[in-house]
């Protein structure tokens, strides 16, 4: 019985961990490659959920076609945000970027509240809801699919950055923008593509998780907070770190909630952050290791 409980907590923790990693990925990517601390990250996640609701409920698309459409739309949106907003503060240090994205997040929340209102929205899932048992462990098909899609997205983003010409251009631009542009890389486009990729990842996790929970206009703040916890745990800008940080947070929360109290579960992340900052301020995985 106790083993059953333990296994269920572990499963819950791993599922949540993958969700956390996925929702933090866009944040760490944009920070790692562009040095922009994106405070509008949670709002991109929220927009993914809301547009996910729009394409599945209003346009009547099935989940995966909807996901593809949301990816395209949010990539275009991210591209435009970079070309019209982020570009104006590029190269001026981190503070203008922070102020810009904070402003953007406030604008996005209120614009969404104005258009669709504060009601929670239901994103139609890929499959029917209902329990699925593996021995004593209960999960749902929807969660398994979300974990699968999440892992695929994480792997896909990794491959884009590691194996494609675009990825090489991104890394080159990040290491030395001047040299990259001398070598013929259009750094403006590379920055925009990076921001679009980060924005798309956030939006896709928003739609994916919106199909399990619900999408809502003011969810962004909490998502940003958790994503920052994950990213600080793993190391700002580190890809592997985001995955490790996500899993660590998910599993720690599951066990704390399971064996101590669920009412204070949000404390866990912040205690972890304080411990990491005290003993290993560069995060579990330092960025240097990732860059090499």
């Amino acid at each position: 019985m106790d083993l059953d409980l333990f296994l269920q907590f572990l499963t819950n923790g791993v599922v949540m961990g993958v969700f956390y990693a996925l929702s933090a990925l866009g944040l760490t990517l944009i920070f790692g490659l562009m040095r922009v601390v994106n405070f509008a990250h949670g709002e991109f996640y929220m927009l993914g959920g809301v547009t996910g609701w729009f394409v599945t409920s209003y346009l009547g698309l099935d989940f995966f076609s909807g996901l593809a459409l949301v990816a395209v739309a949010m990539a275009a949106f991210g591209w435009l945000v970079d070309r019209f907003l982020i570009e104006r503060v590029r190269g001026q240090g981190e503070e203008p970027g922070i102020l810009l994205t904070i402003g953007l997040s406030i604008f996005l929340v209120n614009a969404t509240l104005l258009v669709v209102g504060p009601a929670p929205m239901k994103v139609a899932g890929a499959v029917a809801e209902g329990p699925l048992f593996f021995g004593p462990i209960a999960v749902t098909k929807l969660r398994l699919i979300a974990v699968g899609v999440g892992i695929a997205l994480i792997a896909g983003a990794h491959l884009i950055i590691r194996k494609t010409r675009l990825g090489a251009a991104m890394r080159a631009t990040f290491q030395d923008p001047m040299a990259a542009s001398l070598a013929g890389i259009r750094t403006g486009n590379v920055y925009a593509a990076t921001f679009a990729l980060g924005c798309t990842l956030a939006a896709l996790s928003g739609m994916l998780l919106g199909s399990i929970y619900s999408a809502q206009a003011s969810v962004g703040g909490l998502i940003s907070l958790k994503s920052f916890v994950v990213v600080i745990l793993g190391g700002m800008g580190s890809f592997a770190g985001a995955i490790a940080g996500g899993l660590l947070l998910g599993i720690a929360e599951a066990f704390w909630g399971g064996y101590v109290a669920t009412g204070m579960v949000d404390v866990v992340g912040f205690v972890l952050v304080i411990l990491i900052l005290l003993f290993r301020p560069q995060g579990l995985f330092s960025i240097r290791a990732e860059r090499a």
């Binding site: 409980l5 269920q8 819950n12 929970y213 399971g258 109290a261 669920t262 009412g263 579960v265």
Partner: peptide, 20 residues
């Protein structure tokens, strides 16, 4: 008797205890 925070989205941990 269990409590959860406003805006919580995942209750599986709490419900695992409930099931037990």
């Amino acid at each position: 008797t269990e409590y959860f925070d406003h805006g919580t989205t995942d209750f599986f941990t709490l419900l695992t205890k409930l099931r037990a």
